[in-house]
Design a protein around this nucleic acid. Structure first.
Lengths: 191, 191, 191, 191
DNA sequence: CATGAATGAGTTTTCATTCAT
DNA sequence: TATGAATGAAAACTCATTCAT
């Protein structure tokens, strides 16, 4: 049998693509570069992905699915709401930092010609674990009375912003900073 | 067709560019489309801008300068810190909403190959009025002890996030929502 | 005003395409060659034709329409059937010889991936003038009783075959040869 | 899968190639498709044929040799010229119909870049049995005085044309039609 | 200046051929 | 041998930029 079509190669291509998007943005993304970065010949990419559009869309799905699963791991129903929220938020923060390539890709994707109505909706799924936990918080009356979307923004927005600052070089994120930040956020959203 | 004055044409091109970037991002930005959107011939754009890169960078400068001036208007030294902050933040919020095309452009610009070291620094200027006010707050001990960049993130991050949600269709921003949001943020950053 | 989009350029591209198809066949037809042959840049061809497939299909239509009109010119209702048939046949013969590039193209097109159901039908239109004249002949009982398609084959087939022989180099077609050939064909189809 | 004997595989590849050429012509002929159609892997084709050109040229030779032998079988020197011609012509007709894939291939081959000077000449060999019989006819003064190539065209041309019509769907060829056609042709070429 | 057709370098995509298994 | 994934040269196509009008 010949060399076997390889799932690992798909991963390779995904990583190469994300890396390039993070470094130079969507605009400069060339299929030849993706292939080179993945250590493959140009044509090989086309064995695994019909065309550039398909590659980008599949990568989007891949990241979305993987991300949601990963950052929301190990939520414990028994924990107090505050503890659960703190844990989820920190996981999200750490995940966003560690996976800045993915995050960069997701962000770029939002304003790209590749974004379709379908993927627009799917995007919301990413925040699903958060929204569910917020629902619980509101039931337990531990959360301020306000639209969940607003509360979500208060929690998620600073994360994005801080990571951007760190990328800029204008902020150094440490565990202590993360902890303090959560405490401040908690002050605003708790009831 | 009547001759249109040059400055108007530049403005026309800027608007067209921002609109297109907002809709489909930098990726799909074609000079021919910019021209068409502006109601001009392709070649005409090149009379006012040497090339695509120049157009984008000049537009960036244009937006940055215009933005800073506009949203930070009328800060009154006599007002209390809380009042000043509230005012500045709301101005920023409203400005960001009204000028979502500009905002989209700035956001895209960050991860684009057009971003040079120079404009990277200049970008921070946009937040200058905020940073100055935060300094005052810390001197007056009205602000939590934490890096200004973090506090800035707590204030700015939710704004970006909420506008994104509204664009998504998952949130409807009203004056009331804006007011409540500020109160929550204030809870977290006040001392 | 800028240079005007030019019908003559379309003609240029058509001629270049036909010439290349005649010389090297459909298989070797490259857009870059078409452009070069037409004295244009590669991109220019794409201003006039969306893609290769479109070029080929439009050329097909162009040839078909032009051909039908041209070879069937000047049929005189007053002439005797024999005279009319002789005239039409000779015109067809001469036309096929003079327009061997077109003929070559048409022939190649038949077994190409470009042939659609639609163009399959349209192809028959080419023979329309002949079929009409044959109908008249059958009404006047000057034509053998047989399906018109068969009679058409008896008349058209030898033309194609002789031109192919001449292209091969195994036959030299002269006016005398053409005349004699018609007489023989007439012997077989007359009643 | 059981090992298939080599010669069978070559035959398999030939059949696959002819089938594809008949359907979509040389233009769309891809080695991978040939392999798939033959039920083989792409690489396998290259075990039997050095490259695409070789495959096509060998297939051409294969068809030519097979064809000549087959359709001209059983010519009886004792038969009258008319009877012999009738027999040969009908054999040719039937052969052409039954082997339309082969015929399509030969036709396409003529205008392909694969046709070399050498195979150009060889092509004429296909008509050799016919040309010989026509020589006999002229010696016996049973044939009209005209270049043999013209007479050949009168006989062969309609065959090609009728088969094309049948492929089109505009003619249904029956044994009766074939018989009548020969009679008409005979009217024109007999002396 | 304004126009938009023309240009051709740069990308995407295809496919004959190779080669690890 | 047989396989079919991998390769990369070549072809199709795009689009920033130029230039004749």
């Amino acid at each position: 049998m010949a060399r076997v079509k390889d799932d690992q190669k798909i991963e390779l291509i995904y990583q190469a693509t994300m890396g390039l998007v993070m470094k130079h943005g969507f605009t400069a993304l060339k299929m030849a570069d993706v292939a080179a970065e993945a250590g493959l010949a140009t044509g090989t990419v086309y064995i695994y992905f019909k065309d550039k559009e398909t590659l980008i869309n599949q990568l989007y799905n891949y990241i979305r699915e993987k991300s949601t699963g990963l950052y929301a791991e190990g939520i414990d129903e028994e924990d107090s709401f505050r503890k659960s929220l703190r844990r989820l938020w920190k996981q999200f923060f750490n995940f966003s930092m560690e996976h800045s390539a993915e995050a960069a890709f997701l962000e770029q994707y939002q304003r790209s010609p590749y974004l379709t109505g379908k993927s627009k909706k799917e995007n919301n799924l990413l925040m699903q674990p958060f929204l569910e936990l917020l629902s619980r918080g509101q039931q337990e009356k531990r959360l301020v009375k306000l639209e969940k979307e607003v509360i979500l923004s208060l929690m998620i927005g600073p994360v994005h912003e801080m990571i951007r600052s760190q990328t800029n070089g204008s902020l150094k994120i440490t565990p202590t900073v993360i902890d303090s930040t959560f405490e401040l956020i908690w002050e605003s959203v708790k009831r």
